[in-house]
Amino acid sequence: MIENQVVSVSQVVKQNEGNIVSDMDGEKVMLSINKGKYYNLGEMGGEIWDQIKEPTSVKELIESLLAQYDVEESECRDQVISFLGMLASEELIQLS
């Protein structure tokens, strides 16, 4: 079970280095060299991962997803923050 680090919309997020990422049948699979673990980010997680290649505020990320996907703002915000919290707990992203 992955723990969840607290993330706020005012933070800036960026991919951590040291991960090998591959697309498999529409889903993103990642090997963390640092952790020695494999992860499946799924389709939506892969989309979010692509959008945080460069430093991006959590607020901008949510706004970008809202423009592309049919989802309520509160649902999108809560689920994206939860997902980023899991990535942060696994040290896959940097938050500032």
Binding site: I2, V29, K37, Y39, N40, L41, G42, Y69, V80, F83
Partner: peptide, 15 residues
């Protein structure tokens, strides 16, 4: 036309 939203999940693969 907006795309269908799916909850983003992080799954640890047992490899």
């Amino acid at each position: 036309m907006k795309r269908e939203w799916k909850k983003p999940l992080l799954e640890v693969l047992d490899v």
